[in-house]
Structures are given as C-alpha cells and as structure tokens.
C-alpha cells in the first residue's frame, strides 16, 4: 500500500495468467483428489451441497480427507475439529513465513488470500517471492481459481462418486504425494536443504509410527527447522 502502486508493475492480467499457469499442474493434481474427497463424503451421507460448502469454507485437502475418514453417525464433531486444527497447525508456520512477502498488499486481499492458501499455491508463492515481488493478481487471483477448482471438483465427486467408483484405483491419492515431491524438489538446491528434508522425513516417519496421524506434520516441520539452524553458517554471498 505504500509507494506508487504502479511502479513498473506488470499488468494485472499478465500476472494473473502467470499465476494460473504456474498453478495449473497443482490444479490438475488436485482434481482427482477433490473427486476422491467428494466421492467418499457422498458415500458417508453428505449431500453434494454439504461437500461443496465444506470445500469452500475449509479449503484444506489433507484435513478434509482425514475428517471424512473419521465421519460416522452421529458425527464426532469435537474429534473432527481437533484433528483438523492439528493437521492444519502447519498453516501457522506457512502463513508466518509468507506474511512479510505480502505485507504490501491491502488487508482485504491478505485476509482473502490467506483463506485460499493451500500447500501448493503457498509453495509457489514462496518460490516466486524469493525471485520477485508478489503481486495481488498472482497471489489472490490464482489462489481464487485454485479454490474454485477444489470446490467444483469435490462437488462433482459427490455427484459422480457412485458412478466412477473408487478413484484410488487410478492412483488418484498418489497425485497428492507426487506434487509434494515435485514442490520439495523445487526448494532443494543446496546440501543444507537436503539435510532439512532428510531430518523432516525421518522425524515425521518416526512420529507417525509412534504417535499417529496429525503429529508427524509438526514433528517433521520442527525437525527440519532445527536442522536448518544446526547447519547454518554465515554465507559470504548473503549480502544480497
């Protein structure tokens, strides 16, 4: 909001288009996942409207899939909400890391943009921010399309679910894993970052084995951060 908003700013449309183009693979990977979510939810008795509403309001694939696995009648509301918060606690870290890079945007854009913040568009925004200034159409514009994609396909999954059968047959669940591998690879360019990834993977696997599902995410996140602190050395080229 400070300074001239038009200082060498690339056009709204080109930034938006670029954001969507970079998010396109993630959107395609999210489609089978959203179909999977919708299909399972429908099989548990949720209406297509309830499925679309949950995707629109929650917008967190991993937590939604976990919640729908826990879904029974009567609905264990407290357990589902607690599991959701634990799985999404990583968003505190993710949002904190991204916040300074969007500080120049108006408050409404940040409030909306952080609602449509998922792992994939957050990772791409971080990568982009490392190279150039994040713009509103790139961040919020592409995020909104990502959101719409998720809502539409989970709604479609609720309707089509009974027809197509289990999308896991087509490896739909692994699309999520594959895109995360691709995103991690785009961050890992130095040996130190390899150490971060190894520490996170080891801690997460171990914690998942000992404590179970939501805890591994935080354990891995903090192990990776700890490793980054351990291997840190003042770099001579850090002046930039």
């Amino acid at each position: 909001m400070t300074g001239s908003p038009h200082e060498t700013s690339p056009s709204f449309l080109s930034e938006w288009r670029e954001g969507i183009a970079e998010l396109a693979p993630a959107m395609i990977a999210a489609m089978p996942l959203a179909l999977l979510y919708g299909a399972i939810a429908a099989s548990k008795g949720l209406s297509p409207f309830a499925v679309a509403l949950s995707s629109g309001l929650v917008f967190a694939g991993g937590a939604q899939l976990a919640a729908i696995e826990m879904w029974t009648t009567p609905v264990p509301v407290a357990a589902i909400v607690l599991s959701t918060v634990l799985i999404n606690a990583r968003y505190v870290l993710m949002a904190a890391s991204l916040a300074p890079k969007v500080a120049h945007m108006p408050l409404w854009a940040r409030l909306l943009g952080f609602h449509v913040l998922a792992d994939e568009n957050w990772a791409l925004a971080e990568r982009r921010a490392a190279m150039r200034r994040l713009t509103l159409p790139y961040f919020l514009g592409a995020g909104a399309v990502f959101w719409l994609n998720w809502v539409a396909f989970s709604w479609a999954g609720a309707i089509l679910g009974p027809i197509i059968g289990d999308p896991r047959r087509f490896g739909a669940d692994f699309a999520f894993t594959a895109i995360f591998i691709g995103l991690v690879a785009s961050f890992v360019t130095t040996r130190r970052q390899v150490a971060v990834v190894v520490a996170s993977a080891a801690a997460a696997t171990l914690t998942h084995w000992m404590l179970g599902s939501p805890w591994h995410v935080l354990a891995g996140a903090f192990a990776g951060m700890g490793m980054a602190v351990l291997v840190w050395t003042p770099a001579p080229e850090a002046a930039t």
């Binding site: 084995w209 996140a221 192990a223 980054a228």
Partner: peptide, 19 residues
Amino acid sequence: AALDAIPPAVLTAVIAPTL
C-alpha cells in the same frame, strides 16, 4: 534459516508416512 526451512520441511513431513 529456520523460517526458510519451513516450506521444504512442512511439505516433506506431510507425505513422509505415505512414502
């Protein structure tokens, strides 16, 4: 450095049990 490690660390942690 700790903050910069968040993206790869979080993404890795989410999928590690699957892998």
